[in-house]
Design a protein around this nucleic acid. Sequence first.
RNA 1: GGGCGGAUAGCUCAGCGGUAGAGCGGCGCCUUUACACGGCGCGGGCCGGGGGUUCGAAUCCCUCUCCGCCCACCA
Length: 876
Amino acid sequence: MSEIPQSYDPAKAEREWAARWERDGLYRWDATRPRSETFAVDTPPLTVSGSLHIGHAFSFTQADLIVRYQRMRGKNTFYPIGWDDNGLATERRVQNVFGIRPDPRKAYDPSFQPTRERPKDERVEEVSRRNFIEACARVTAEDERAFEDVWRRIGLSVDWTTQYTTIDERCRRTSQLSFLDLVRKGEAYQKFAPTVWDVDDRTAVAQAEIEDREQPGAYHDLRFGIEGGGEFTISTTRPELLGACVAVVAHPDDPRYQPYFGKRARTPLFHAPVPILPSPHADPEKGTGILMVCTFGDQADVDFWRGGELPLRQLIGLDGRMRKVTFGEAPFESADPARAREAWAGLEGKTVKQAQAKSVELLRAAGALVGEPRAIVHAVKYYERGSRPLEFVPTRQWFVRLLVHKQALLEQGRKVQWHPGYMRARYENWVEGLNQDWCISRQRYSGVPFPVWYPLDADGAPDHARPIFAAPESLPVDPLSATPPGYTEAQRDRAGGFSGDPDVMDTWATSSLTPQIASGWPLDPDRHAKLFPMDMRPQAHEIIRTWAFYTIVKAWMHEREIPWRNAAISGWILDPDRKKMSKSKGNVVTPMALLDAHSVDAVRYWAARARLGADTALDEQVMKLGRRLATKLANAGRFALLQLERAEATAESHPASRITHPLDVDFAAKLAAVVERATLAFDDFEFAPALQATEEAFWDFCDNYLEIVKVRAYADTASDGRESALATLQLALRVFLRLFAPALPFVTEEVWSWRFAGAGRERSIHTSPWPTPAEFAAISLERAGRSYDAAREVSAAIRGAKTGAKKSLRWPVARLEVRGGDAEVAALRAVLADVLGAGSVDASACRLEHGTPAEGALFATTVELAEHASDPSANA
RNA sequence: GGGCGGAUAGCUCAGCGGUAGAGCGGCGCCUUUACACGGCGCGGGCCGGGGGUUCGAAUCCCUCUCCGCCCACCA
């Protein structure tokens, strides 16, 4: 036993215990134990290029609570840690930090050193792809160290030996193996097709990364002619796409346009003959009921174009500017090429926004604009990190099949237990609403390359139909530096030679494999079998459609399995004004200052009080409460242990079998019930009710049990009564400490170390067995009655009388009269000595009588205080 | 427009079929030998509105209103 200090210093305990746990390898996974004893966690690899805010500490703590509980239950916990450091988020950060941007045409400069503190006005410098990737590695390594500091500080019980990053060799290999497996199974394919494209980042993006933003726009009414006579008006928000118009459509039942079906219209400005076709997607109520099909304005255009034999008139280039095209030549037909070319000359090279303004000008001059544009607000699709609207641009991309698997993926989602249960609806909504396969290729640099090359024909053009895949044992490979089998490096990018796939994978293509990365799939099948499917995936709700969804997709495609049995979805942290905390809003609160101000246990307590899935306001009051609780725990622990120490001369230990006094038996029974409630709650991932039940019982223990039992525990000579009190103190403290240990790992470990730390599992509270009914088995709980309740009620009446009279709690009582039913009076009589001792009531002043209790109470109690106190220390 | 949450004391939230709860804040006391980072006590609520089921509803059902989130909506 270590010495019991006078006061508890949280900061000191945090430093010392964190170091000790790491030194002892307390949280290591034991690979020799069987799957049935394992609790495996699919820890979120945090995006290190984002800002680490208190919300991350909040959700990671919630996962840690469950892991700590499972570990105490005897589970061999597998709690890995990783960082997500590839992808566009990292590239953005590097561009901001160093002011550099990749240019694949530039040569590698080994002497290049990125520097910070680049003046804001200085131009962004273009560097080689390799220099850029090196800069990414440098930034993320720094970020990862900063993040690790926070995670260690907050006491996450992760196994640090498992650390990985999504750009490291192991992840690149796993990711590429996954890709090859999907190709082999026919789930991954490449296709040249209109794809959602971000013109700033110049890459394709996936449906999951698209968000709608409300923004101002305008309807423009354009006059179209009909071949053979007549005209009609089309309302469009995108007049700049007029040149890309390949058809006009109206609803098949719309009588206004039925006569024109089969005829051709003439577009204004470009004089392109376009078919007038029926289509059910045209809404007669909207606009004029007839609309342009352009290549491509929206998903409806893409869908319609795919279903017909229409030409492709791509106007918008990869850079978001109007391409150089020639009207009058296929596919840009025109009945009046000269005027069409003249119109296009005013638009070519312009951005979408500029082209729109110019188009209005031209249309107005040509008399094709009916009235003036009418302002509206409408939703426009953006890349979630983008600043300009997305466009559909035909490009070659790799996709993973989703649309044909919706049903299977819904079924997989139902096999997962979602916590809270209603979060499953988010998953199902997303799956049901899918309208594109998963585009996994990105025209970027910092990511996992596709392990693919293409043969070049005699003209030097790649033959995408005959990709050359890397051999699995050669992974990870970078096709831009590695040579495919059967070729020499000299043939790279030469006619008749080969070319590496220049793209990298979507970051989700890798992070969707976190369970497999951690388990060692597929190279270590034994280890994989011991860890997969995992037991718990903790994550936030806004990435159910990405991370949770893609992880379920991959597990199903590779092994027809669910990736984990439980998904524990944490809520968001809102600022005190209930706004979501985010970097862009500038309301981010970082964890370190809060940890310093309130202590780690206090911040963890705040996280532990919130229910899974519920958005929670940042509330420092709750942290103060947590700190108070930790202090109380240390003080109550100190008191109980001092009593035990004082009595050591007469008793070696204080087994539960010595708990015989009615007050103690009753309290033990209440405690046993709390253990049961907390255990049931934790089993169901409900840490907040578990904590609440524990806390309620603990404050009752401090405010009532301890006060009432004090006199008996203080007795100078050994007796059954004193021994019963001491045994109860010991049992209660051991139980409370362990019930609190997941939420308050530092103070509980500290107090535990003062007396209870032993060998084996009990060397730390965090590996000690979770309390069970067995610990109460030696107590005759069947004899538990209402003595404790009776003692508490009468004590409260005595305290109330003294407080009401503005007297100190040691003020003597002249008369105490308690009336109640016979059973209640008997229950009180059994613990009367404790009650009188705690209330400074002389036995001679007390009368217990049969009578009618007050409403909602056990007794009717009358307290009369003495006029004077003989004990000077009791003077008010 | 579809889906999912939420609405309970000034604030943050628990309770989810049996007489309205906690903490904080407010007010008033008490230095008491574990703790003043403490203790005792007092006020404070038509449990969002309206219907229904029930002996009994904050709790179950219907409906409306408001708040938040997810998805859809680009003519």
